[in-house]
Design a protein around this nucleic acid. Structure first.
Lengths: 345, 345
DNA sequence: GTCTTCGTGGGTAACGTTTTACAGAAATGT
DNA sequence: ACATTTCTGTAAAACGTTACCCACGAAGAC
């Protein structure tokens, strides 16, 4: 006689095996599409699974094999650019058995460490770190434990793959666009950075370098003017205030991110100036905000969707073969000119 | 002689126990702050944990007890209002041992089911569902399996707690504000809804009812005018186009969400009209976008942070006592008047 | 006709933690 | 001084799945 078993116990692989009159091993093999299972067995087991509504227990799987879970860490949910990356990521993974789980937005190395640890504790099969600010040693420690792809950060490492945009070119795109329009006094609002690792690897730092190089290449070295704040709306506001207070005001501002441009537009409006008549403004990331008609912000498109899709592909590859050499994918940005930039008066 | 053990094996509770010269049970008790452990034992074990850098394996925990993980499902990462809720949530949980993990944005019942199942499979200790559109039966099925709090949905259920804003009042706040300014032809852009469950429970539907009631209460029943689209930027754009094409144009538009207002502003600008001179616009959610000075959108603040914080508290309560009666928290919205609304000309 | 090989299925031991049950020591009550 | 309770600590059995190894029969090779 069968034991009645408590009413709301979850169906396990044992129940399926009994119902299909096979061993648990057989069921497990079917679940994992493992080698050595006949078509007859396939259908028998699959039918039992369907009839019982069985779903594998991820915790138990995690103890022996994989969890079929991929962890994604991003610094800030508010930045719509990251949503594009996520779309690319999830679309690419939607055909697979993997489920994406996001860490809550985290700013600061401490929070990043907390989230990455939490994901490792939960035996994630792979991790995608979007624009992490953590020290390189920490990233490598994570990558040593679990297959990892780092997105939006330039330094290479033999232990993890990277997908990034060519921010050097991106910075130059904006400068050349503005210079072509006839601007000379082109200022830049950057994210202040002192850590040498990050100065060499973070996109914001590379964009600033791209700005400098392009200014020099266009013979505008004397007009290089940088406000060093943060990549936030507040930072854009403060940065623009600084720049507008210069003895000779810039005629164009290149904000390192659309969210920064948003703050800059705010400060410019407050100062009673018009865009683009009095001053041109360009952003970076081509978010929906930039496309918004009343704003119509010239921006740089990073193809976030492709970044995410590529990151997912690399991660799946690496999960399949942890020892393959690390790959670096670099995508090319494109300029999207809109009404916020115009020739200087 | 100790077995050397493979180089990069993770530290387990057994290692800690051996290092501290106690049983694994003792270590487990310390980890869980369980009853029956002396101060001496405490310090001895904690020191061993620190020295070895031990971290509990969540998968193994999940098999026997809790996973210390809370799953949050939200429909759309792009809506900044949800970010506020998340902030309240994570702040409230930051002192606890619980880790929040987010499902990727999901639109549609199928995707919601996929995400909720994935979270149940992963033995989450609790779940917070933000503005779910799934049928009530599905929500109750989830809640029957795991402690659940439903946010931003009005229907009550004995199986789950809810936190929502008083959208009926919110809709009225906007109508009264506009009517006080002297508007009569106040139109509304709503999210089209046919499912009877959702018509009774979704915030968008309640806001529309609030709009109707308030219009009637102000004697403006004849001016009720609703464009039924979706709560997206595109929906706002199309809705406003419809309204602007009326034989007698409304003098004010109440968009059901800021993101909708964004689309409406777009359509209005395209039609060559000015805000607020030609037409007033009000949104809902008081996102950072509304506060953005060049836009300065009148909106309704839902206190997203408080919503999130309350949801977290309710969930912790319910995890502690699964059988306590379900609670419903309703918060009051406030109007934030800005420059996008003004008396009609 | 025997000896391999191959394809298929099952038994069993992990995986790392918590829970249950229990034993011994210490403290308390009479 | 003895009986009783309280406090600490341990051993052992789960939890659900997968990995490893072995057994069996059928097909192929000689």
């Amino acid at each position: 006689m069968e034991k009645p078993s408590s009413p709301s116990r979850r169906i396990t692989i044992v129940d399926v095996a009994r119902h299909a009159q096979v061993s648990t091993t057989a069921v497990s093999k079917v679940l994992r599409n493992a080698y050595g299972v006949s078509p007859t067995m396939q259908t028998k087991v699959r039918q039992a699974i369907a009839e019982l509504g069985y779903r594998p227990n991820a915790a138990a799987r995690g103890m022996r094999g994989q969890t079929y879970t991929i962890g994604v860490m991003l610094p800030n949910i508010r930045n719509p650019f990251f949503a594009q990356i996520l779309d690319g990521l999830t679309d690419q993974l939607s055909d697979t058995d993997y489920q994406v789980l996001l860490g809550p937005g985290c700013n600061g190395e401490a929070e990043e460490a907390r989230v990455t640890h939490a994901m490792i504790d939960r035996s994630m099969d792979g991790m995608i770190l979007i624009a992490p600010i953590s020290a390189r040693t920490h990233l490598e420690a994570v990558a040593a434990t679990v297959p990892t792809v780092v997105v939006g950060r330039h330094g290479h490492s033999p232990t993890y793959d990277t997908v990034a945009d060519d921010d050097l070119t991106g910075g130059a795109l904006v400068v050349n666009h503005l210079a072509d329009l006839g601007h000379q006094r082109i200022a830049h609002i950057e994210h202040h950075e002192t850590d040498p690792d990050r100065l060499a690897e973070m996109p914001n730092a590379i964009r600033a370098i791209g700005y400098r190089h392009a200014m020099q290449a266009r013979g505008l070295a004397d007009h290089i003017d940088i406000a060093s704040t943060t990549y936030t709306q507040e930072g854009g506001y403060l940065g623009a205030q600084q720049l507008l207070a210069r003895p000779t005001r810039p005629t164009a501002i290149f904000a390192g991110a659309d969210i920064v441009a948003m703050g800059a537009l705010d400060a410019i409006a407050e100062a009673g100036l018009r865009v683009p008549e009095d001053i041109s403004v360009a952003g970076y990331d081509n978010t929906t905000f930039a496309a918004f008609r009343p704003i119509s912000l010239t921006s740089v498109d990073q193809a976030g969707y492709q970044i995410g899709a590529n990151a997912a592909r690399l991660l799946l590859d690496r999960i399949a073969d942890r020892n393959r050499p690390a790959a670096q994918i670099k995508l090319s940005p494109t300029l999207v000119p809109r009404r916020s930039t115009a020739p200087p008066r």
